[in-house]
Simulated scan of single mutants.
Amino acid sequence: MPHILPELPYAQTALEPYVSAETLSFHYGKHHNAYVGKLNALIEGTEFEDMSLEDIIKATAGVAAHAGIFNNAAQIWNHTFYWHSMTPDGGGKPTGALAEMIERDFGGYDQFVAAFKDAGATQFGSGWAWLVYKDSKLSVVKTANAECPLTDGVIPLLTMDVWEHAYYLDYQNKRPDYIQVFLDKLVNWSFVEENLSAAK
Rank of each mutant, 00 (worst) to 15 (best):
S197N: 13
A129H: 04
G125A: 09
D118G: 12
K58C: 08
Q75D: 10
P176N: 02
R175Y: 07
P156W: 05
V181N: 15
G29A: 11
K58H: 06
S126C: 08
A11E: 11
G91W: 07
R104F: 12
N78R: 11
P6R: 14
E49F: 05
A198N: 13
Q12G: 01
M160H: 09
N173S: 05
S126I: 03
I4Q: 09
A41M: 01
L150S: 03
T95Y: 10
Q111I: 09
L169K: 07
P6G: 02
S197G: 08
S52R: 13
I179M: 12
N71D: 15
Y167A: 05
F48T: 00
F48H: 12
S126G: 10
V36Y: 01
V192F: 07
Y18V: 13
V132F: 01
L169W: 03
V192E: 06
E22H: 07
P2N: 01
Q180I: 03
D110W: 00
D50P: 00
N188R: 10
L53D: 08
C148N: 09
S139G: 15
L15G: 04
A199P: 06
L8Y: 07
L24I: 10
S20A: 10
S52G: 10
F112W: 13
Y10D: 01
D55I: 03
D135R: 15
S126V: 06
L5C: 02
Q75F: 01
W163D: 13
P156G: 12
A61T: 08
K200E: 15
E7Q: 05
